[in-house]
Design a binder for these strands. Sequence first.
DNA 1: TTCCCTCTGTATCAGTTGTTACATATCCGG
DNA 2: CCGGATATGTAACAACTGATACAGAGGGAA
Lengths: 222, 222
Amino acid sequence: MNILDELERFEPFRKLSGRGKILLSQGVIRKECSRSTIALNKGQVVSGAYVVVSGRLRVFTLAPNGTEATLYFINPGETCVLALNCLFNDLLYPAWVQAEDNTVITLIPGAIYRRLFEQESTIQNMTVHALSTLVFRLMTELEQMHSSHQKQRLANFILLHASSQGLLQMTQQQIAHHLGTTREVIARLLREFVANGLVRTQRGSLAILDASSLQKLISFPG
Amino acid sequence: MNILDELERFEPFRKLSGRGKILLSQGVIRKECSRSTIALNKGQVVSGAYVVVSGRLRVFTLAPNGTEATLYFINPGETCVLALNCLFNDLLYPAWVQAEDNTVITLIPGAIYRRLFEQESTIQNMTVHALSTLVFRLMTELEQMHSSHQKQRLANFILLHASSQGLLQMTQQQIAHHLGTTREVIARLLREFVANGLVRTQRGSLAILDASSLQKLISFPG
DNA sequence: TTCCCTCTGTATCAGTTGTTACATATCCGG
DNA sequence: CCGGATATGTAACAACTGATACAGAGGGAA
């Protein structure tokens, strides 16, 4: 299975005309990343559009004191919009990106992507849609950040990222990174959640016991 | 001077072909707003693309306790990207918008805008560029929010929004709104700035005395 | 001038968060 | 089963922030 076949699993690329395929084949790169392979650093020149084939990318900022904060995730079939962004505006990449285990990405060189964008309306639509989605995620995150306490944000994060069985397989350190705080703060909040019977904690994971109370907490931090 | 002439002051519209103009003329609306005319409310259905002709729009979120936080401004020639966003994704508007004094906006109905987007590459480019710019602004704001204290954010805000003479004509309440905090906090921080000779405060405005020290403060909150 | 409204200055207190420091627990490999 | 590495639990403190309360100060209108 070559790169183009992989790309064609995703609708915008499946719809490409023959010319699109020819364009695409010129210099598209496939990359396999393992956890902690850093895909892109802040300030780096963006060389093309990234499309996630499998796995997941995490985009985050890094404060001077070392605490991270996740901005958003990039799932299979999605492109890194920030990279698109830089591509179209000749800007340097403004954040850090890390791959989770077994992530495969393809890199479509900038020149090719720009040509595709001009000629293929499905690529145009995908681009606009991806940008729009990101704007929405960022807005939501910003709004949460300025109107919620950590307790609310944690409750929200747990509900949002837990599996359908109510299990969240993450260390407290990882959760802390996502929320832009430290492990101790997460531990303190989780202690309170546990005391109130909202969750159960184990090493490396956490189980929701009372989802509705967690939900209420988001609106009424009481 | 009719609406289309006004729109043509801005490049993307100047470049429109004859057909584009015909499309544009069908139902474009001109609106004049005075301060505190609220252009758009959270949860409202977005009826079209907004282009600012003169004046300025402010987009902000509103926390349950009533504190505002400015997300970004929309200057003449720019469009409200959030509205575009909703337009292309059939979403409800996710924030509040307020006009400053003497702001004139034009409203291009959604159906027309979508057609223009499909047929006119200048409109495509404008849309992508506007979305990209917004993504960048939001990212920057988010990063600042999670890595800076109010002191740093205030110093940054003052430097960024002061006139070339170093004058910032805003009440402390307005500044507080922009940073998502309360007036008293701003007063407390400004007191410190004044004590250190960084700024001078007057009723309704504030003058920068030592820009370079303010700049240093952003990096080293000391 | 005088009244009134808005804007500013200040003090104090409570709540939240980040930091430091250390104890304990769990997992994994040898 | 024994260490080392990693993850968690806990306490105590400092810093920052938001909330409350009130005292002036400035500016405009009658």
